[in-house]
Design a protein around this nucleic acid. Structure first.
Length: 266
DNA sequence: ATCAGCACCTGTTGGC
DNA sequence: TGCCAACAGGTGCTGA
C-alpha cells in the first residue's frame, strides 16, 4: 500500500531521470486505468515532463503544455522504470524519446492515471501535506475541532491530511501514545502536539528507509523498502509490543484493520 | 452536510 | 490434499 513515504521514494528516484523526457507513446493495457474524469491518455503524447512531484499519495508529472499527469498507485500499483524483464500485470506503459519506458504494473487494477487540465488542487481535493510549514499545532487543532470520528479514521481521510494511509496512521498513533478509537475532536492539546511531531518523525524515518514493503510495494527500480522491519504495530497483532511486551491488538475501524498497543496507547 | 457501506479487483490465506 | 470463501485496503460513489 504505497503511502506518503513510498510515493516520496518513487518520486525522488524518478525525478532526475524523467525531467526533460519527451513522451513518445502511451500503451494502454487496461482502459479503466485511465480516469475518465480527466483527458484521454493519448493527449499527452509529444509533451515533455518538466518536473515530477508528490501531492499526497499522487505522483504528479508536470507537463510542458501546462497540464499535469497524475498517477495514483492505490493498493498494489507499481511504477517501474525500464524493467529488465517483462512485468506481469502491466496496465500502462509510457515510452519516451530515446527508448526509456515507465510501466504501471498493478495486480488489482486499482491504480489510476489522470490527465488534469486545470487546477490540480481542485481536481484532486487533497488536504494539507504533513510536512507543510503552515500545518502548525494551532492549524491541526482547528481541523480536529468538533470531529466525532475516531482519530485513526480521521488521519486516513485525504481531505484533511494528504498522504497518511493505514500503516502510518497506526504507527503515528503508537508513537504518540494515542488510542486509535479516541474521537478526533477529543484529543488534548498535548496529544495533538505529540501526534504532529511523532507523525512527522515516523514519516521522515520511513522515507529514510525507502518506505515499507508489507505486501506489494516496490520502488521505481523494482526493489523493496526497508521500513517494514521497523514497524511497531502494523501487521504485528499478537506479537509483543516493542516497548512493554503486551500483545499488539487488531481491531476493525471503517472496514480496515487497526493495530495498537492497549497499554502504551491511552 | 456528513458519513457508513459498498464497489472496484485479484492474489493469498485459512478453514473445512 | 484440495477447494473456495474470506480477506487485504485507497478511493469514489450512493443512499441514508
Amino acid at each position: 500500500m504505497p503511502e506518503l513515504p513510498e510515493v516520496e521514494t518513487i518520486v525522488r528516484d524518478l525525478a532526475p531521470t524523467l525531467r526533460g523526457r519527451r513522451i513518445a507513446a502511451v500503451w494502454i493495457g487496461w482502459p479503466r486505468a485511465v480516469d475518465p474524469r480527466g483527458r484521454p491518455a493519448e493527449t499527452i503524447v509529444g509533451e515533455t515532463i518538466l518536473d515530477v512531484r508528490r501531492l499526497g499519495k499522487f505522483i504528479v508529472l508536470q507537463l510542458s503544455g501546462g497540464r499535469h499527469a497524475t498517477i495514483h498507485l492505490r493498493m498494489t500499483g507499481r511504477l517501474i522504470l525500464d524493467p529488465l524483464d517483462n512485468l506481469p500485470h502491466a496496465r500502462l506503459i509510457f515510452t519516451f524519446i530515446g527508448g526509456s519506458r515507465l510501466v504501471l504494473s498493478d495486480a488489482r487494477k486499482f491504480g489510476r492515471l489522470r490527465i488534469v487540465d486545470g487546477d490540480l488542487g481542485a481536481a484532486l481535493a487533497q488536504g494539507a501535506d504533513p510536512f507543510d510549514k503552515s500545518l502548525t499545532a494551532q492549524a491541526l487543532a482547528k481541523m480536529l475541532k468538533g470531529r466525532r470520528t475516531p482519530i485513526k479514521v480521521w488521519l486516513t481521510n485525504q481531505r484533511y491530511l494528504a498522504g497518511i494511509g493505514n500503516i502510518y496512521a497506526c504507527e503515528s498513533l503508537y508513537e504518540a501514545g494515542i488510542r486509535p478509537t479516541k474521537r478526533a475532536g477529543r484529543l488534548t492539546s498535548m496529544q495533538r502536539d505529540r501526534l504532529l511531531h511523532r507523525m512527522r518523525r515516523v514519516l521522515r524515518n520511513a522515507i529514510r528507509n525507502r518506505g515499507s514493503s508489507v505486501d506489494d510495494y516496490l520502488d521505481a527500480e523494482g526493489k523493496p523498502g526497508g521500513f517494514q522491519n521497523l514497524l511497531a504495530v502494523y501487521g504485528r497483532s499478537g506479537l509483543p509490543c516493542r516497548r512493554c511486551g503486551t500483545p499488539i491488538r487488531r481491531i476493525v475501524q471503517a472496514q480496515r484493520g487497526t493495530f495498537f498497543c492497549p497499554v502504551c496507547q491511552r
